[in-house]
Design a binder for these strands. Structure first.
Length: 218
DNA sequence: AATGAGGGCAACCGCAAATGT
DNA sequence: CACATTTGCGGTTGCCCTCAT
């Protein structure tokens, strides 16, 4: 195992960005741990991945959040809780880190929400009721019984291995497809015409949920 | 002008799941 | 199947900037 301290930490320089971009241009993304070996970049693979996903990727939208984006995040957070990756997947051009930061620094303040520790959140009546309802809906899915304390229903919905397909708005197989079809059956689909959400798959899933998202009021 | 507080955001950390060997 | 490695997630930290004093 190589010593951790061989890697640099802190903010990235333009030169480091250039090296990383060049590597990705030639080799594509993935195999992040190869990057320091191949390029000589003094950054661990994990750091390279993060830099690409949160900053260098051309799909990342810079600048402030629009009101529509904020509204969407608030509604998705109301439904999904702190599933930042899942929320970000439905806000085009925004990363989970951006969404998380924006929530913590702006939206929470805007909504007058105080920081709540996880024990309190877990104990809240509202949260318990939501989780109970979600668990009930998911209980007949074989994968669901395998979930650990960390791999809750939201993460299952995400279908980790199909994540990129989902965020690209494509149909995916496995768990998330099962969830989509299941909820589509259990609840009539509502046609949604939203300026930001342009892929219907997950909206249908959301509409299948027994939660009031209030899309119509948008 | 100096400096301390607070906000915003990029990046790190620890953990767990997925994948590879 | 067991173990190692890689990938991905959410929480947290710490740096930098702005603004008030």
């Amino acid at each position: 195992m190589e010593a951790e301290n061989q890697y640099k930490k802190g903010l990235w320089t333009e030169e480091e960005d250039r090296i990383l971009l060049e590597y990705i241009r030639v080799h594509g993304r993935g195999k992040w741990n190869r990057i320091p070996k191949v390029t000589g970049l003094k950054r661990c693979g994990k750091s390279c991945r993060l830099r690409w996903l949160n900053y260098l990727s051309p799909t990342v939208k810079r600048g402030g959040f629009s009101e529509e984006e904020e509204d969407l995040i608030i509604r998705l957070h109301n439904l999904l809780g702190n599933r930042w990756s899942l929320i970000a997947g439905r806000v085009p051009g925004r990363t989970d880190n951006q969404v998380k930061n924006h929530w913590n620094t702006h939206l929470r303040k805007k909504l007058g929400i105080k920081k709540q520790n996880r024990k309190l959140l877990g104990a809240s009546k509202e949260h318990s009721a939501q989780m109970e309802e979600r668990n009930k809906l998911c209980s007949d899915h074989s994968q669901y019984s395998k979930l650990s304390h960390r791999t809750d229903s939201a993460k299952l919905m995400q279908g980790r291995t199909n994540e990129s397909a989902l965020s690209a708005g494509e149909a995916s197989n496995g768990e998330s497809q099962w969830m989509s079809s299941h909820f589509a059956e259990s609840s009539p689909l509502i046609s949604v015409d939203h300026p930001i959400l342009d892929s219907p798959g997950f909206i249908e899933l959301i509409d299948g949920y027994p939660f009031d998202l209030g899309w119509q009021s948008l």
